[in-house]
Design a protein around this nucleic acid. Structure first.
Lengths: 220, 220
DNA sequence: CGATCGTTTGATCCGCATCAAGATAGGTGG
DNA sequence: CCACCTATCTTGATGCGGATCAAACGATCG
């Protein structure tokens, strides 16, 4: 059960005593999912709070024309559905699909509500997490609106490298290019054509191999 | 002091007893601002939690080329900076400018943190509010990415009409067109050219007068 | 009545989506 | 080990939409 100790360290529980953590963790169970499994679909009632122990999950929705737009990629250590649980509407507003075999810990929604009500530490952690995520999203939106595909992609690669703790000198792309394109709201074709342009910024991508040679981090 | 009783009714305080509300409200003070006043700028330390009693405030940032992008328009009853207060970074990440003479109640940041820690009702209200706002923003982002200017504008007008409680049969635009364009991430020119196209959707705009003749609400 | 701000209209251009093939890679079975 | 297949990615040709530049128009205000 090494997964349990992993979950103990997520930010949601920070500041709690070991015994409090143990008690809370009894409320959840661990499940395994395979690539392409659906966690939930838009409109489904929100039943669980999720903590990803390993693997990857994409959150996405479909445009009117049937194109998938990925709004977030969640990886090990991330949580899902915090927003859905405290919002008034009790149904999901997007789809969630497993894109890499995953281990996921699930808690009933009421568990989270209770935890937030009874432990002010938990509710403050949640507030912090939601704020954090909100801030991310704001930046994302404004980037989306004001940056060229080249900048977006450069940004994305650097973000990815940082948050996944990869070696900037050279790493293997952890996502398919189609997924990245969907995440950046562009077509696969545009993504392909954008890759070569990154060299001017000191980023080279060959196949699935990336190296961020001396490219500075984007300001804001 | 009719403003005080107005503030008592915002969702942040719902579920609290009158005496609790009165006690909390002693922590804030009311200020008056004029059009074009700056509430705060990006990078400033987050000092206050704001509740708008009357007027309008825009939250915006500048692109690299110096263009303003408005990310939100806040009106009477709205709060500001909830996110900023609970996020780790203690500085604002966007500018706030008063766009219509306003009355605003301000509380010190610590006041909100304390209130959240000591009243689980308040922290749950905050969680709900943040979730709500997060959901709005997600929809916004996805709309921005997948809708044409015509749809965006139609959407915006309907939203505005609803949230401001205006008469769909005919009302006066509560914002300048430049502001709307900035909010919808398009140029003034594009907005102008889009207005006539709305007639096909049963929306007519003449000058600052709008009527939403039988236009259905956009799904999702 | 000029001056400034906000809005509209016109002409042009560029970037990304779209449509359409081709290329590469991984996987399976003969 | 090779032929075949499907999934994923790349490249090419074309067109349209919205940004941009430029100028006129309208409104509000001292």
């Amino acid at each position: 059960m090494l997964n349990i100790s992993f979950v103990k360290n997520i930010s949601l529980f920070s500041g709690l005593s070991e015994t409090e953590k143990d008690m809370l963790l009894t409320g959840g169970s661990i499940y395994f999912y395979n690539r392409k499994d659906t966690l939930f679909r838009r409109g489904d009632p929100v039943m669980h709070f999720y903590v990803i122990c390993s693997g990857q999950v994409k959150l996405f929705h479909e445009t009117a024309e049937g194109v998938d737009v990925t709004t977030a990629i969640r990886i090990a250590g991330d949580t899902m559905c915090t927003t859905g649980i405290f919002a008034l509407h009790a149904s999901h507003h997007m789809h969630a699909e497993v894109i890499k075999d995953s281990t996921i810990m699930e808690f009933p929604v009421q568990w989270l509500k209770d935890a937030a009500r009874e432990h002010s530490t938990v509710s403050l952690n949640l507030l912090s997490a939601l704020s954090q995520r909100g801030r991310r999203q704001e930046m994302d939106t404004q980037n989306q609106a004001s940056m060229t595909p080249v900048q977006l992609l450069a940004n994305f690669l650097q973000q990815t490298c940082t948050t996944q703790g990869l070696d900037p000198q050279g790493f293997t792309l952890p996502f398919s290019k189609t997924l990245i394109a969907s995440r950046l709201c562009m077509t696969r074709e545009t993504l392909s054509r954008t890759l070569p342009k990154l060299k001017e910024m000191g980023i080279s991508v060959t196949g699935t191999h990336v190296s961020l040679h001396g490219s500075q981090v984007m300001k804001h």
